[in-house]
Simulated assay, not measured.
Amino acid sequence: MRLIKARDLGYEPAGTIFSNVSDFSAERVNRLKDKCYDDIEISGFNLMCGGDERGFFHACIHMPSYVSLDKGVPIRLSSKDWLEPSDTSTADYEEKDLVIVWDRDEIQHMIDIFQLALDKLKSQ
């Protein structure tokens, strides 16, 4: 994995999985630079849909970060909730914002963990 400026996401290949770094953690990393040895807080997993030659990306698919309730009962997410690209873009990030970019092996590991969960659910 790599820690990069969010505004540089558009230079990454389409299909890049990234997680936003919390504002508190980003501020600390930006202030301390390579003297920062703390854990950082991340949120969500996002799929960057592709940038252009100037490094501007124009959409991404977010893993849902909320679930709607109807009278206290969670509403099942639809295919649209999982696959609909949002208009998140480079313009939504400030210079200080950071993201974690996951590498291919880490993404495969995530898939393996989800597959393990599915296998266990199927056996019940």
Rank of each mutant, 00 (worst) to 15 (best):
D81P: 04
E106C: 03
L98Q: 07
C60E: 12
P13D: 08
I4C: 03
S89R: 13
L9E: 02
S68E: 15
D87P: 00
K80C: 12
L83Y: 12
P64F: 05
I75N: 00
K80V: 12
S22R: 07
V67P: 01
D38P: 01
I61D: 00
A91I: 08
V101S: 00
V67S: 06
I61L: 00
I107G: 05
G72W: 12
I17A: 10
L77N: 08
G50A: 04
P85D: 01
G55F: 09
A59T: 00
A14H: 02
D8Y: 04
K5D: 09
R76H: 10
C60D: 14
E84P: 01
R7Y: 06
R76T: 15
I42C: 15
E12S: 03
D87F: 06
R28D: 11
C60V: 08
S89A: 15
Y93M: 02
L98N: 04
V101F: 06
M48T: 04
F57Q: 01
Y37W: 12
C49H: 09
L77H: 15
I42H: 08
I100E: 01
D34G: 02
T90G: 05
F45D: 01
A6T: 05
M63A: 15
H109G: 11
D23R: 15
F56N: 13
H58T: 10
F18C: 06
D39H: 02
L32K: 13
Y11S: 06
S22C: 04
A14N: 00
F24G: 03
F57R: 05
R76D: 10
D92E: 10
V101W: 03
E106M: 03
E84R: 14
Y37E: 14
W102I: 05
D39A: 08
S65L: 13
L98C: 07
